[in-house]
Computed example of a mutant assay.
Amino acid sequence: MKARTAFAAILVGVLAVLSLLVVRPFLDYLLAAMLLAFVLTPAQRRLAPEIGSKVSAFALVGLTVLLFVGPIGLLLRVALESLNDLPTSASELPTFESVERVAERTLGVQLSGQFDRLVEGVTGIVAQQSSGIASASVHAFLGVLLLLFLLYYLLEDGDTLVRWTKSVTPLPRAVQDELYAEAEDATWAVLKGHVFVATVQGFVSGLGLFALGIPDAAFWTVVMMFLAMVPIVGVAPVLGGGVIYLAVNGRFLEGALLFVYGMTVVAITDDYLRALVIDKESSLHSGVVLMGVFGAAYFLGAIGIFVGPIILALFKATIEVFTEYYDLG
């Protein structure tokens, strides 16, 4: 009997490692699909009895595509425009000729052609990396397709997956039910406290950029929505850059207005929303959130900004459930 148990454990362990290796190249897309399915499941449960589970799942996936295509398309457009505007020679750089003349008079060195070779070298390096960029683009395209398919099936068969997981988990059903409930509460607390609040804060900050005519304000608004999820950092880099931009262009009054707007309206929005939507008993400490964001972003990439704090929140909830049920304290 012990030999059978050992063999079963080894077999399961080997298959688990192989499964992880299979999933690893697209792990970030898998986690994104799971997170989106968690958020959309309440809507799926409402719509499925009315229009059918398949139709409702397909509709929610379509809605997700529409909501994400806009911001991603905006980012790509701005990025492509920035690439097209890159100079191919030093003579195309703004105020290059005057800077070159001043440097030659100051240093007494002939710099003609040096900057041209430098800029052309940088451009050549970018061209050499084109194959890597193409490969990354193919990987991202396949990952997005996988994400959409997984999202559809998680919405349609998510409850079946949860029931199967509970049936094979070697824990009493009461423990599992409490663990799932705590995990759901912790995940919603993180989503509401850090994703929703960051989205609103980034949007409110973007209104200030639009009002004062900052270039590419829509792009920087999307950037601030992501930066607002990072504790300590927040939207300050973009708003501070906006203030500097206005001051450099001689628009001192508008720069002062943007500074005051960030210190009052944006700050109050952040504090008020966090106090309104976060249950203080289930929220994580800011230091834990910071560790989750930075650590998971390093390990998982961009999706780690969302998943990192949730993983730590789930760990905290698991410890609390086990401590209560098994009297580990």
Rank of each mutant, 00 (worst) to 15 (best):
G124H: 10
G124L: 06
G124I: 09
I125N: 01
I125F: 11
I125D: 05
I125W: 04
I125V: 15
V126H: 11
V126Y: 14
A127R: 10
A127K: 06
A127S: 10
Q128D: 12
Q128L: 14
S131Y: 06
S131E: 13
G132I: 02
I133H: 05
I133K: 06
I133L: 14
A134M: 07
A134R: 09
S135D: 11
A136E: 08
A136V: 05
S137Y: 09
V138W: 08
V138S: 07
H139A: 13
A140H: 12
A140S: 13
A140K: 13
A140N: 09
F141R: 04
F141P: 01
F141T: 15
L142W: 10
L142S: 08
L142I: 14
L142M: 12
L142D: 00
G143Q: 02
V144Q: 02
L145T: 07
L145W: 08
L146Q: 05
L146G: 10
L147C: 06
L147I: 04
L147H: 08
L147V: 03
L147S: 03
L148S: 01
L148D: 00
F149N: 04
F149E: 03
L150N: 01
L151R: 07
L151Q: 11
Y152P: 03
Y152H: 14
Y153E: 03
Y153I: 05
L154S: 07
L154A: 10
L154C: 07
L155Y: 05
E156Y: 13
E156M: 14
E156P: 07
D157L: 15
D157V: 14
D157H: 14
D157E: 15
G158T: 03
G158I: 00
D159R: 14
D159C: 08
D159S: 15
D159M: 11
T160C: 07
L161Q: 10
L161W: 13
V162P: 00
R163P: 03
R163A: 15
R163W: 11
W164T: 14
K166I: 05
K166R: 15
K166V: 08
V168H: 09
V168P: 00
T169H: 05
P170E: 00
L171Y: 11
L171M: 14
L171G: 08
P172L: 07
R173H: 06
A174I: 11
D177Y: 02
E178H: 09
E178F: 02
L179I: 13
L179R: 00
L179D: 06
L179S: 06
Y180C: 09
Y180S: 13
A181V: 08
E182C: 06
E182H: 12
A183W: 09
A183F: 08
A183M: 11
E184T: 11
E184S: 13
E184F: 04
D185A: 11
D185I: 11
T187S: 12
A189G: 11
V190A: 04
V190W: 00
V190F: 02
L191H: 01
L191V: 14
L191K: 02
K192Q: 14
K192T: 12
G193D: 00
G193W: 01
H194W: 13
H194R: 13
H194F: 13
V195T: 12
V195Y: 08
F196R: 04
F196I: 13
V197I: 12
V197A: 12
V197M: 09
A198M: 06
A198G: 01
A198I: 10
T199I: 15
T199P: 01
